[in-house]
C-alpha cells in the first residue's frame, strides 16, 4: 500500500483551509462562516461514513447494502428537490428518477460482471451514480424553470394554437435534458486530459497499475452517461406537466 495519510498529516493539511478563510476575509466575501461550517460538516460526515462503511463491509449483508443504497438515493433526491424548488412533487419525482437511473445502471454493471454485489463495490458505485444523476436532475430542473419563465409568451402562443402540453413544452424539455446531460458529456470528452477522475486516481493511489485503473474509469464513464441521460430525461418528462394546471393553462 502506498497510502500514508495519518492524523498528523491531516491536521497539518487542515491549514490549507486557512487559505480559503484568508481569501474570504481579505476580499470581504462573507464566506468565512460557510467555509468553517462546510469543513466541519465534511470532517464529521466523512468520519461517520467511514465507520458506517467499515461496519457494512464487514457484515456484508444483502439487505443492509440495499438499505445503504436507498439511503444514498433518498439523500440525492432530497438535494435534487432543492434545485426543483417551485416544481410540485419535486421530491417524489427526484426519488423515482434517481431510483430508476441508479437501479438500471447498477443492474447492467452487476449483470455484465463489471462489478460484484458486495458492499465495497455496490455502495461507492451507487454513490457515484446517484450523485451524478442528482446534479443532472438539478440542472434540468433549473433549466425547465428558467425556460418556462423566459419563454412564457411562446408557450402561451403554442397553447393558444391548440397545442397539447407536450407540443407546447417540447422545445423547453429537450433543452433541459441537454443541459442536464452536458457536464457528463463534456467531462467524458476531456477525461484523462484535463483531470484524472476519482475512480482512476483512487486506484492509482492505492498502487494499482494505471492500465487496469483506466478500465474502471471507462466503466465509470459509461455508467455516468447512462445515469445522467436517464435521470435528465425522466425528470424532465415527469416535471414539465407541473408547470400547467388541470385546465392545461400555464401556471
Amino acid at each position: 500500500m502506498n497510502l500514508a495519510v495519518n492524523n498528523t498529516s491531516l491536521f497539518l493539511a487542515a491549514f490549507l483551509v486557512l487559505v480559503a478563510l484568508t481569501i474570504s476575509l481579505w476580499q470581504k466575501l462573507g464566506l468565512d462562516r460557510d467555509i468553517v461550517i462546510g469543513v466541519v460538516r465534511a470532517v464529521i460526515q466523512l468520519f461517520v461514513v467511514g465507520y458506517v462503511l467499515k461496519y457494512i463491509f464487514r457484515v456484508n449483508h444483502f439487505w443492509l447494502t440495499l438499505a445503504m443504497i436507498m439511503f444514498i438515493i433518498f439523500n440525492a433526491a432530497w438535494n435534487a428537490k432543492k434545485r426543483g424548488d417551485g416544481i410540485d412533487h419535486a421530491l417524489p419525482i427526484s426519488f423515482v428518477v434517481i431510483f430508476v437511473s441508479t437501479g438500471v445502471t447498477l443492474g447492467v454493471l452487476v449483470l455484465s460482471g463489471a462489478i460484484r454485489f458486495i458492499p465495497s463495490q455496490m455502495i461507492p458505485i451507487s454513490g457515484m451514480i446517484a450523485s451524478n444523476a442528482m446534479v443532472a436532475i438539478g440542472l434540468a430542473y433549473r433549466s425547465l424553470k428558467t425556460q418556462f419563465h423566459d419563454q412564457r409568451q411562446g408557450v402561451l402562443e403554442r397553447l393558444a394554437l391548440g397545442a397539447g402540453l407536450m407540443d407546447a413544452s417540447i422545445a423547453i424539455v429537450r433543452e433541459a435534458i441537454r443541459t442536464g446531460m452536458a457536464p457528463t458529456i463534456d467531462s467524458a470528452k476531456t477525461v484523462g486530459l484535463v483531470s484524472l477522475p476519482g475512480m482512476m486516481s483512487g486506484l492509482i493511489f492505492a498502487g494499482v497499475d494505471p492500465v487496469r485503473a483506466i478500465k474502471y474509469q471507462i466503466m465509470v464513464t459509461f455508467m455516468l452517461m447512462s445515469a445522467t441521460s436517464l435521470g435528465a430525461i425522466i425528470a424532465c418528462y415527469l416535471a414539465y406537466r407541473n408547470f400547467y394546471n388541470a385546465k392545461k393553462q400555464l401556471k
Binding site: 409568451q153 411562446g154 402562443e157 393558444a160 385546465k247
Partner: peptide, 23 residues
C-alpha cells in the same frame, strides 16, 4: 367552456396575440 377538452376548445376559439412570437 370547462366541459370541453382544453386543447380541442382552443382549436375552436383561437387567440391571436398582439406581439406574436414566431417559433
Amino acid at each position: 367552456i370547462e366541459s370541453y377538452e382544453p386543447t380541442w376548445y382552443r382549436r375552436q376559439v383561437s387567440y391571436c396575440f398582439q406581439q406574436p412570437t414566431l417559433f
